[in-house]
Design a binder for these strands. Structure first.
Length: 267
DNA sequence: AATGGGACCTGCGCGC
DNA sequence: TGCGCGCAGGTCCCAT
């Protein structure tokens, strides 16, 4: 599933691939992923516009157009951007004047494409917590104080910190040796410090490895991300913990599948 | 205010 | 064999 490292990878590659390209045609194979505009309004807003820049905030991609409007893309779980594509199995494709095609694929149709005047006014952005790279240990600790829920649910809360999803929450907690169900108000100062360090580290390393190919995520070129091989707990139910050999357990936390080592990670 | 749970969506894997 | 069910999780929405 695309989380910060995956979306950042796409953002970097998309920037290299399409900045300066002019949209010649919009091909809409399934309008369900387009929010707030009809098919024809969506096409009209994009056709003839040039891609000026590509930004990322949390898991949201933001594409600045020459009209000074923004095309925002949220991949949710199974969204993919592929370039060059072919518009064959895509939900929406963008054909540029150089004849190359950018495909937006999305098996489960939960992804969202929008066109907005100002992305900063989107509710999702207004409620978004800090980017991990902007977060200091002091601020992290301050944000953790007075919170009572399970640490994993809090890490995945986009208003708490931007860009962390199910996979990296699990990986960071394993590396920090903290049980995913541990209540935030019972974390020691040392645990908070270690969690802060490991969370930043895992996100940075995953980005350097171009993300994790779980579910449908692939890089812009269609290649898999390389971080999948570095996972220590995610998807490893029943397999031995890479530190102590105890079988990795899978439980449900906040309705989400959660992997952890019952020996290394204590409540 | 903060928290938890359900809904959304589709394809796949499993069990009977 | 074939079918139906559960599951995958990011975000929004609602109830408490």
């Amino acid at each position: 599933m695309p989380e910060l490292p995956e979306v950042e990878t796409i953002k970097q590659e998309l920037g290299k691939a399409v900045i300066g390209n002019k949209i010649k045609q919009v091909i809409i194979n399934n309008p369900r992923v387009i929010k707030g505009l009809t098919k024809s309004e969506f096409s009209k807003q994009l056709t003839g516009k040039t891609i000026k820049s590509v930004l990322r905030k949390g898991k949201l991609l933001i594409i600045k157009l020459s009209s000074n409007k923004f095309l925002t893309i949220h991949l949710r779980m199974t969204g993919q951007l592929i370039y060059p594509g072919n518009a064959e199995k895509s939900r929406v494709s963008f054909k540029f004047s150089n004849e190359k095609i950018l495909d937006f694929n999305d098996q489960r149709l939960l992804g969202e494409l929008k066109i907005v005047d100002n992305w900063k006014l989107l509710p999702f952005i207004k409620n978004l917590g800090p980017e991990p790279s902007d977060l200091t240990l002091q601020k992290f600790k301050q944000k953790l104080s007075k919170r009572k829920k399970k640490i994993k649910s809090l890490l995945m809360d986009q208003s708490f910190i931007a860009g962390v999803g199910n996979l990296y929450a699990a990986e960071a907690l394993f590396r920090a040796k903290i049980h995913p169900e541990k209540k935030v108000n019972s974390l020691s100062d040392k645990e908070k410090q270690l969690l802060f360090k490991e969370l930043k580290k895992v996100l940075k390393q995953a980005t350097l490895h171009r993300g994790s190919s779980i579910d449908e995520y692939v890089q812009l070129s269609g290649q898999a991300g390389n971080y999948t091989l570095k996972h220590k707990v995610y998807g490893r139910q029943g397999k031995p913990c890479l530190v102590c050999g105890t079988p990795i357990k899978r439980i449900t936390v906040g309705g989400r599948g959660t992997y952890f080592c019952p020996k290394c990670q204590r409540k």
